[in-house]
Write a protein that binds this DNA or RNA. Structure first.
Lengths: 222, 222
DNA sequence: CCTACCGATCGGTAGG
DNA sequence: CCTACCGATCGGTAGG
């Protein structure tokens, strides 16, 4: 039966865009899959990825435990899909709006403002998903740990390139070490997320904005 | 049997300092209790307090599962004792060395240096215990969440009072808002902990030191 | 996607 | 501090 559904999904897949060997579900199943994943991402942002269990996810969605399991085929795969789904949301809510600003310093500033806004709007009920994820897996080896490091390196690389752009345009002092500036900016953004999530007081986001703009002012070319 | 041990411990207790209704164990049991707790604190700093189970703690210490349970009487109590024990370590490794410096600005600086040193020396194998704890419970209501908030407020209060001391001595500009300065300093210390724990590269601690001293320089009275 | 299971482990209890 | 349990839940499987 599973095979039949899998094959049907595979056929549907062919008509769409995705020709991988990973079987997918047809439209109804696809929707259920997404519904479960949405719930899982929200739960994981509050309690941590390791606290998500098939049973509780089943209860939260009204699907049977084995129904949930059938969608993900293992707990590891479920965890990975949760992280992927969260990544898409982060991309949509932080990266894309940030990159819409004009190149150079405005883009750098907009990126951090997008982050603060995304925290303030509580896109994830438990605060920034990835701040929580890093904290959960920073000291634990395994595939998630590696994925977390890759994600952090990607973010750092993006910000460094924005800083270098701004330096080439003469908007940021050329004597500033990009990696150090990223450290300063990220410290503020993560701390604002941290305290907003703990206290749910927008004053912390405002402090984050102030601290970011203070740092930017200091490194701005004269 | 439990009652007998409990009563024996109670008697011992009377001879010491502590006359609460909470029964304690006699010296052997006391030692086992501490051994279990030490392991639990280390494990919890890596995996999170919620990941500690009686079974795994039993396995890690060689005590039977019910033996572990007998020492703590509930998982909640175990969690609370873990947090208390971590708090004592934090007090010893960060607060006390910090407060040994001369009053005013040197004491403020020393407090943050003590923190960075405590991270660098890996007092907890999974990074600063309380950074992890806040991250784990920031979005979850319950007694641990409340304890975490109380702990954060205590730290913030301490730092604010150090800043005000330094302001009264004319070492920090009186126009600086203490709460905002704490925000800036804590952002850096937590971020250094965060990245050191993820990468285990002392360069992140060094960046933290640089960022701290830069902030201090900026707010220093002219 | 379901019911009906499996062995392992969970927090906790009884009794010593 | 131990053995020997309890019901509940875990991730996962069989079969439809």
């Amino acid at each position: 039966m599973l095979t039949k559904i899998a094959r049907a999904c595979y056929d549907v897949n062919m008509d769409e865009n995705n020709i991988t060997e990973q079987p997918r579900r047809r439209s109804d199943g696809e929707q259920t899959h997404q519904t479960i994943l949405d719930r899982a991402v929200k739960l994981a942002s509050i309690e941590g990825v390791n606290q998500i269990t098939l049973g509780r996810l089943a209860q939260a969605t009204g699907v049977s435990k084995s129904g949930v399991y059938a969608h993900f085929k293992s707990k590891e795969r479920l965890q990975m899909e949760i992280i992927e789904a969260a990544g898409e949301i982060y991309e949509r809510e932080v990266i894309e709006p940030g990159l819409q600003a004009p190149e150079g310093l405005p883009r750098l500033i907009k990126l951090y403002e997008s982050f603060l806004s995304y925290v303030e709007r509580e896109i994830f009920p438990g605060g920034c998903f990835f701040a929580g994820l890093i904290s959960e897996f920073d000291a634990q080896s395994g595939p998630v740990h590696e994925a977390v490091i890759a994600g952090h390196r990607e973010w750092e690389g993006l910000v460094v390139s924005l800083i270098q752009d701004a330096q080439q345009r003469g908007e940021i002092d050329s004597g500033v070490e990009p990696a150090f500036l990223v450290f300063q900016l990220d410290a503020v953004k993560d701390h604002a997320n941290f305290l907003y999530t703990l206290y749910r007081d927008p004053a912390w986001i405002e402090r984050g904005r102030q601290a970011i703009s203070r740092i930017v002012t200091q490194v701005s070319a004269t």
